[in-house]
């Protein structure tokens, strides 16, 4: 299914909250686009969970390596928005 609307940072942070919760002391509404996931309190399980949610909500196929390769929200969004 081709993607019609881009996934935005706001979409991603919403899904992160739903899939993995929010680390105490982290403001996901702040300037987090280049903050490594690890510093946002998200481990690989959290990323797998949110990537699963993105795939289901947007009908995308995101490659396995995304969880390793995408270290920041910006990198993950780039992967998502070029996925098919």
């Amino acid at each position: 299914m081709p993607i019609t609307t881009e996934v935005t940072l706001a979409d991603l942070t919403r899904m992160l909250r739903e899939s993995a919760g929010e680390e105490e002391g982290v403001d996901l509404d702040g300037d987090v686009i280049d903050t490594p996931f690890i510093d946002l309190g998200y481990d690989s399980l959290a990323l797998l969970q949110v990537i699963g949610q993105i795939q289901r909500e947007y009908g995308l196929v995101i490659p396995d390596d995304a969880v390793v390769d995408a270290e920041t929200p910006r990198a993950l969004l780039a992967l998502i928005n070029t996925a098919s």
Binding site: R17, S19, A20, G21, E23, E24, G41, L45
Partner: peptide
């Protein structure tokens, strides 16, 4: 329970 633990 901390927010991070809720979904898991």
């Amino acid at each position: 329970i901390p927010s991070r633990l809720m979904p898991q």
